[in-house]
Design a protein around this nucleic acid. Structure first.
Lengths: 338, 338
DNA sequence: TCTGGCACTCGGCACACGGGAGTGCCAGCG
DNA sequence: CGCTGGCACTCCCGTGTGCCGAGTGCCAGA
């Protein structure tokens, strides 16, 4: 177990390195922090921290920088979450209020989060399968052409075109619409497959094919993995990463374009509590030099989706965590109101 | 006026520079192209081209690189549009087919375009105001809560929540829905304001307030500038820009995040024909070292939106233009089918 | 267990140097 | 009059050298 002072040294190293982006040496440490001991002592502590794998030297005779393990310890034991100041909280609220629809909410959130953290922001749309059905609408656009519209309590709206095998009468359509809604409205989307299973039986033989087509389209829309969507923003902040660009930034941009990768990343994180994944803790190779801070958000108690930021492992963890948590909280409120 | 040979020299310079990314000298030129003259002669031609402002030297005693004016001449007079090969055309079609909704179409298009051109792709959603109304739906979600859903012939669906001043009966709602659709279905969105102007008059006094609220929400969604949306992709290709990253890439990423800037950029381009804006021809400063190739696309004859790519001024113009044109054509087809 | 001292290591920078690619100019040739 | 080969000149750039400073590890002493 590391002594109290050694932990203090580690904390100082992390803070300084995050601030200066340069390896920090023993002398500079004693000057900037009141450790109460001499550089030589700090050097011994640093040697011990290095033995334990918390810090490392980029080159012999250079200062130390924290390793992923070092950041992990810092986040778990040495740092808290820095709460937002009152003006910041007000700014968040102002910025998010006045969104006209869900796209707007998500868009504003992603911009806000990118600006607050000066990093790349990722916001997942509320998951269909974790939301509740508000309404299912069927519109007849042409004799054998139906549009299916799903509306969730979180404001998300999905639509699908359906080509019916045979023309579908307006009364049958109204019948199906009414039956569908009476079964599923107010229920979680996850239950929908069960709830509509035997619906075709209630219809005349000639309509059954069409009803089945509609239902299977409905179920397809709910398949996890395809129904998940997200928005990212603040990629310009990647340019603040470091000086050795091309190699650092490239894989990150590529990862961000692969929505599958991001969704997996968010999916792996704890369900609603805040999760920090540091460097190599991220399964995806391109993100091995980044950290991901994410948290679930939702209109009520349960999380319907996640949001977070992607930044260099060398990031201000307490500040970032504070911003992410605060934004998630306010977005949840907005969704609950809509 | 420049002689035939000098134009040929300019063409050779552009082609070589685009290929190698390095200033091209007189000797290298004569070696790679059959110009039929000696380096000394080419030197004289280059001096003339430089006097006219078509090419420039990064430093004394270095090769020449094309200026924006040089690229302009190249695009206008010296190069055509390189048509896609048959396999490429097939690949495009395969890639775009099977999209389930408009978001999917736009998403696939942006990825496709980024991949084909190896540059940043930008695709605008079909403009509401330039589309035709397919259907307007009103859903009663709560006694004084109505959801407005607009559906265009291009597959776009917009929705807005409306809080009614007074509860709105189901029959009044059905009445309004029917009247609305009979007036606007099949008409261009641009005409909607005119068409619905006197609608409140047809209702009882108590409902008139609500009807007006619904109509004003409808009109708000049609305001140009707010209704325009777009998707971008392929930002990872920016890393191929050059070696002097931070300065080049940063403002471009920033511009791409400012949807307003991009929309303006696309808006300024010719309405449906292909437009190439080179370097400083772009009004936005951050894009002064990039070229934008854009073209309108639409389901029928008229363009309902634009798509294009953003890349370094040093780009393969014929190939890029070919890809952009081909993709626009296929997207138009897909939209017409849906 | 901490401290001050000391020798050592190594990255980064400033500087000088030379090679090479490219240029402009000029005189001569068809 | 236009094209060509030759020539002197200009710079960019990569390489090599030397120095400085920050940082380290180790050791003897308090």
């Amino acid at each position: 177990m590391l002594s109290e002072r050694r932990l203090e040294v580690l904390r100082a190293i992390v803070q300084d390195y995050v601030g200066t982006e340069e390896p920090v040496g023993s002398k500079a440490l004693t000057e900037r922090h009141r450790l109460g001991v001499s550089p030589a002592t700090v050097r011994n502590d640093m040697a011990a921290l290095e033995d334990e794998g918390y810090i490392a030297q980029p080159h012999t005779s250079a200062g130390r920088i924290p390793t992923d393990k070092g950041y992990r310890l810092f986040v778990d034991k040495l740092a808290g979450v820095k709460p937002m100041t009152a003006p910041e909280r007000r700014a968040i609220q102002n910025f998010l209020d006045g969104a006209v629809d869900l796209d707007d909410v998500v868009g504003r959130t992603v911009r806000l989060l990118a600006q607050l953290t000066r990093q790349v922001a990722v916001v997942q749309y509320p998951s269909l399968t974790r939301s509740t059905v508000r309404h299912v609408e069927l519109l007849s656009l042409a004799p054998a052409r139906v549009m299916l519209v799903l509306i969730t309590d979180t404001g998300r709206v999905e639509q699908r075109m359906i080509n019916c095998p045979v023309p579908f009468g307006e009364t049958s359509l109204a019948d199906l619409r009414a039956r569908l809604n009476s079964r599923v409205a107010g229920r979680p989307f996850a239950d929908v497959p069960q709830l509509v299973q035997d619906l075709p039986d209630a219809f005349e033989a000639e309509d059954r094919g069409t009803v089945s087509t509609v239902l299977s389209t409905l179920l397809e829309t709910l398949v996890e993995e395809t129904e998940e969507r997200l928005m990212i923003g603040g990629t310009a902040n990647l340019t603040r990463f470091g000086h050795d660009f091309p190699l650092t930034i490239r894989p990150v941009l590529e990862a961000l374009e692969e929505q599958v990768v991001l969704l997996k990343l968010l999916g792996e994180a704890g369900d609603s509590s805040m999760t920090v994944r540091i460097g190599h803790e991220n399964a995806y190779e391109g993100l091995n030099s980044t950290s991901v801070v994410s948290v679930g958000y939702g209109s009520g108690g349960e999380a319907v989706a996640k949001l977070g930021v992607v930044g260099p492992t060398r990031m201000d963890y307490p500040g970032t965590m504070g911003a992410v948590r605060a934004v998630a909280r306010y977005v949840g409120q907005i969704l609950a109101e809509s």
